[in-house]
Design a protein around this nucleic acid. Structure first.
Lengths: 250, 250
DNA sequence: ATTAAACGCGCAAGAACGTGCATGAACCGG
DNA sequence: CCGGTTCATGCACGTTCTTGCGCGTTTAAT
């Protein structure tokens, strides 16, 4: 059994069952659990799965309901949001795309800055309902329920008419070597359009996003202007070498 | 059973039933109640639920904060909604514009009818997040916070590209002699565009709307196909003379 | 007031984990 | 054919995580 074959089979098992157990895999492939752990680490790095105690779970964009994702890691997202909003200046035009982290950022936007917020996420538009100082523009299109976002050609077309000072990008994977990536082709199209139409690119990434890679590439690491992360056990020097300003939230 | 899986399943049970019992979960997952309590503590920390003596209750921020409960006559609107959705057929394309009554209608839409819903209200799009059978199209444009709707020329332009079978009109005033009217010029523009692009016009009106007149005229009484009202102390014969089908909800 | 259930805290056993190191096979240029 | 290198793998060790149990406290209901 070649190592690559084993990785592929673990992938298949993940897709079939949504989860795998480390000791079960060790028995099945007749290798030690250490080897299995190494495999799972690799798959997690590639963004295929998420490691948990005892095995790994499939990492899907709609893992759990929309409400569930909003609740997960809420305090980490709130900390990222508090820092991220300080990077947005008075009177700027801001693209905010759909993600639970970005919803937290939208909620944390200070009311006194008179921003123009452009978003393809109805939830973000609604979150700004109580902020009459901000002007909100909704990007229409086909509403993808599982993602809570409007996607598709119409959305992309509307984006092409707008230039923004800042784009707050909800990334699915951020890796210093590979760059910023997304899980879904439709999402990726919209995000790429927003990148093309904005001058400053801001990425707020929760721990589980950092160092992972998703299938669809959005931008090189060097294109990122601001990277906001939670406390850094990780080595972030590679980002700084790529001229990314890294901000660490408490 | 992985610990993370257990957490996810407790999440699902919470979303399904709105509450969970600690001892029932302990039996179901075959672990001690201590472990369950630890899980519930974790979920509470994430803001998913609220712990109570004996178990936990679902904490839904949007269940209460949506315009859903803002409407004073919530039960009247729910009754109108239950009746109104029966007038919408399988597979139809439906315009639903922004109003609290229409939000109730959107929430009452049966999941099995495979509808295409087109709306300029982010709240209505989000309400359909959990209905994967329906295709939802969001109309973009400038988001008017006080109305919870996208208005303006861009919205009107997008409407002009779509034809619907039914338009569920959120009216501000419905009078047999004057017709249907709206309170705001911007709103009126969007509603007129939707009227022009749909074959059947459905109006669900709460008691306070009936017999009142707002400044901006949308359509003649005769243009209404279905009028859904709550119990009829009022004389509705004038509507029927104008060839309007009147439906009275219990 | 009394009582039984539910709770929180601390502890300990065991499983899972990460890391460093050694082994052996595969690979490669000469 | 051979010496050097790389790589996957397994093992040993210490660490971290989960879980169940005991015990005293709090809560809700009678």
């Amino acid at each position: 059994m070649l190592a690559e074959e084993r990785l592929d089979q673990i992938r298949d098992l993940l897709n079939a069952d949504g989860r795998v157990l480390a000791n079960a895999l060790a028995v099945r492939f007749n290798v030690s659990e250490d080897t299995i752990r190494r495999d799972l680490r690799e798959l997690a790095r590639l963004g295929v799965c998420r490691r948990v105690y005892g095995g790994a779970l499939l990492l899907t964009p709609d893992h759990g309901s929309l409400a569930a994702r909003t609740g997960a890691q809420w305090d980490e997202k709130a900390a990222l949001a508090r820092l991220a909003v300080t990077l947005i200046g008075e009177g700027q035009t801001v693209f905010i795309d759909a993600s639970s982290t970005n919803l937290a950022i939208a909620q944390a936007l200070p009311r006194e800055k008179r921003l123009t917020v452009v978003t393809n996420a109805p939830a973000i538009a609604m979150a700004l309902s109580e902020h009459p100082n901000h002007s909100v523009i909704v990007l229409g299109g086909a509403y993808e329920q599982s993602k809570g976002a409007c996607l598709g050609p119409q959305t992309v077309r509307e984006i092409s008419h707008i230039f923004a000072d800042v784009f707050v990008l909800g990334a699915c994977g951020v890796d210093a070597g590979i760059g910023v990536t997304a899980l879904d082709a439709g999402e990726a199209e919209v995000k790429r359009a927003m990148i093309a139409q904005s001058s400053v690119l801001l990425v707020a990434a929760t721990r589980d996003k950092l160092g992972t890679v998703a299938p669809f590439k959005l931008a090189e690491t060097a294109r990122i202007d601001h990277l906001v992360v939670a406390d850094a056990e990780r080595d972030l020097s590679q980002f700084e070498q790529a001229d990314v300003r890294v901000h660490v939230a408490v």
